[in-house]
Computed example of a mutant assay.
Amino acid sequence: MLQGHYLAVLEARDVDEFRSAVLRFTQDIGFNTVSAVTVVEQHGQDADFIAVGNTPPGYEEAYQRVADSRRDPVLQHLKRQSVPLVWSQDTYLKTGLGDLWEEQAAFGYRTGVAMALHLPEGKHFLLGVDRDAPLPEDRRELTRIVADLQLFAVHAQDTALRILVPPSRQPERPALTVREIEALKWTMEGKTAWEVGTILGISQRTAVMHINNAMHKLDCATKHQAVLKALRLGLIH
């Protein structure tokens, strides 16, 4: 069922579509609020923070206070690690910050799962889902939720970088030939090299050559990575 969410967020064409995909995924895995934050560090300048989510209006001021963010144990974890964090009131009590939890709990932030992807060139993607209800006691169910969040984050960060990052900070788009783009498009549809060759009216060997050339230009080790990167860069849709 969640496969549709991964594809929807990957194919989002603008901020509204991206936000809608993130919110639908959040609700389907049983959470009320979500925050997807793209961070772009620039040498000698303040980092850019671009957030998408549904933070309650009354909590905006508290959410954006820098002083609190420097104390918040969840945010401090995300700054240093890529391992997902399952948090609750105990997370704050153990660090002597029960007051922060009390403040956010009034807005529905009582428990949640958060993770960060630290990417090359000073780019980071943070994704956190939160809710008022306790987290599942069944470890298998909780593990499944964390795994779903991790997989969704991998897809969402590609789109966030494509849509939210300023053009001046976007990676340079490699120049793929028409045949290389066509080969990637059909690979995205799950076609084998033989099928791609048949569709395009070329030999299987030539189809493999076009796919390999695209992988090389995109600096990817597999054709599946090449497809994802081509989607993120807007080379295929």
Results as ranks from 00 to 15, higher is better:
P174F: 04
S168Y: 10
L127F: 15
D130W: 06
V129Q: 00
A116G: 07
R169P: 00
T143F: 11
A114C: 09
P171F: 08
D158I: 11
E121R: 10
T143V: 13
D158K: 08
L119G: 02
D148I: 00
L142E: 04
D148K: 07
P174H: 07
K123A: 12
D130Q: 12
Q157W: 05
A153M: 08
I145H: 09
L164W: 01
A133L: 14
L149S: 10
A147H: 13
Q157I: 02
M115G: 12
P167Q: 04
G122P: 03
A153W: 01
Q170K: 15
R173F: 07
D138H: 07
L135H: 02
G122F: 02
A175D: 13
A160I: 02
A114V: 12
S168V: 12
P120T: 05
P167N: 06
L142Q: 03
R131L: 03
L127C: 06
A133H: 13
D130G: 06
E121V: 07
H155E: 05
R162E: 08
V165T: 13
Q157A: 05
V165E: 03
V154G: 10
I163M: 09
L117I: 11
G128S: 08
H118F: 06
L161V: 04
V165S: 05
E141I: 14
G122Y: 00
V154I: 15
V129I: 15
P166M: 02
Q170V: 09
P134C: 11
L161A: 01
F152L: 05
P166V: 03
L135N: 03
D132V: 09
A153K: 00
A175I: 13
R169F: 06
R162D: 06
L117C: 10
P136S: 09
S168M: 09
M115K: 03
G122N: 08
L135F: 02
K123H: 08
A133D: 14
D132L: 14
S168D: 11
V146S: 03
P166W: 01
L149R: 04
A156D: 02
K123Q: 10
A116R: 05
